[in-house]
């Protein structure tokens, strides 16, 4: 019997983690107990930013990370956070199909085998004040947590501010920051209605989590078990995307139920934001080079 340890970053109740737990159960069943995957949720074994490294270094055999958290390594990983490029589940899936092979090849260079990816609900803007056009964003302090997000905030005329996740609740209630870019899911999990009043469902992008395994650990399995892992992964991908889409409507509903003003972006705001998106897509192509150009062309076809 082989035992794998699987560190994941999100709490046990998060739908990504629930999906992974089901994946682990499926693997155990299909391999008739030959492969047992222990899921260590919520960064309890390795923290979010240590997980890829741990699998690469052989400390863990399989893991989950937010794909765009690897963007500093390669611009390719930032594709799903280029704002307003793919704003629906159908588009996000199309974008994933266009870019999957490239991501797989890039991870293979680190000795990692990609198993599957699942999207998060679309990202919106949480704020204390109404945002009717980009002029309303001028000078507003928005939390920045990655280079892409920082750039987007700058292009929107707002001020990116560094606040760590641990300090966010307090930073929002004391005004260190007054707006936040995140998904309906995260906004629900962090109970953002306690600090913020508006949710603008601008659907900027759908980031993805990826699940990957150490190629060495994978190759050490027998043929049947390998197939069991691949089958369970394929099932988890289909199930995860469906789950994510179903949950989105529920999350948005919950925001409303808890007294948040949930609004679509005004036409003026949407037009302004689309311009930001186009500019950032162009900047991304510049960084990602010919390969990036090819992926984008395939997606837009």
């Amino acid at each position: 019997q082989t035992a794998w340890d699987m560190p994941t970053p999100y709490p046990a109740t998060n739908f990504h983690t629930e999906n992974i737990q089901k994946f682990a159960d499926d693997v155990a069943q299909a391999s008739v107990g030959k492969l047992k995957i222990t899921v260590h949720a919520n960064g309890s074994l390795y923290k979010a930013n240590e997980i890829k490294r741990a699998v690469q270094g052989g400390q863990a055999q399989i893991g989950e990370v937010l794909l765009s958290s690897l963007a500093n390594e390669d611009a390719l990983y930032a594709l799903d956070t280029v704002p307003f490029l793919a704003t629906s589940y159908a588009d996000a899936l199309k974008l994933w199909r266009a870019s999957r092979a490239a991501v797989e090849a890039r991870l293979a260079k680190n000795g990692l085998k990609l198993l599957y990816a699942v999207a998060w609900p679309p990202q919106g803007i949480y704020s204390k004040t109404a945002l009717n056009s980009m002029a309303d964003l001028k000078g507003i302090k928005i939390r920045s947590y990655s280079p892409t997000v920082a750039r987007m905030i700058e292009l929107m005329g707002a001020q990116p501010v560094t606040v760590q996740a641990a300090d966010l609740t307090q930073a929002l209630s004391t005004g260190v920051v007054s707006a936040n870019l995140t998904s309906s899911a995260t906004g629900y999990d962090s109970k953002s209605w306690e600090q913020l009043d508006y949710y603008f469902d601008v659907q900027a992008w759908l980031p993805k989590n990826i699940v990957f395994v150490s190629q060495k650990a994978f190759d050490a399995l027998d043929g049947a078990t390998r197939q069991a892992v691949l089958d369970a992964a394929a099932a988890a991908e289909t199930r995860g995307w469906k789950l994510s889409e179903e949950k989105t409507a529920w999350y948005v509903d919950q925001l409303k139920t808890n007294g948040m003003k949930v609004l679509p972006p005004s036409d003026a705001l949407r037009a302004d934001l689309l311009q930001v998106g186009e500019r950032m897509a162009a900047e991304w192509v510049e960084k990602a080079g010919a390969d990036g150009q090819a992926i984008l062309a395939a997606y837009r076809k």
């Binding site: 641990a166 300090d167 930073a171 004391t174 260190v176």
Partner: peptide, 11 residues
């Protein structure tokens, strides 16, 4: 500094 929003609790 914390409650006036000048610094976060860590800062």
């Amino acid at each position: 500094s914390i409650y006036a929003g000048i610094a976060t609790a860590t800062e």
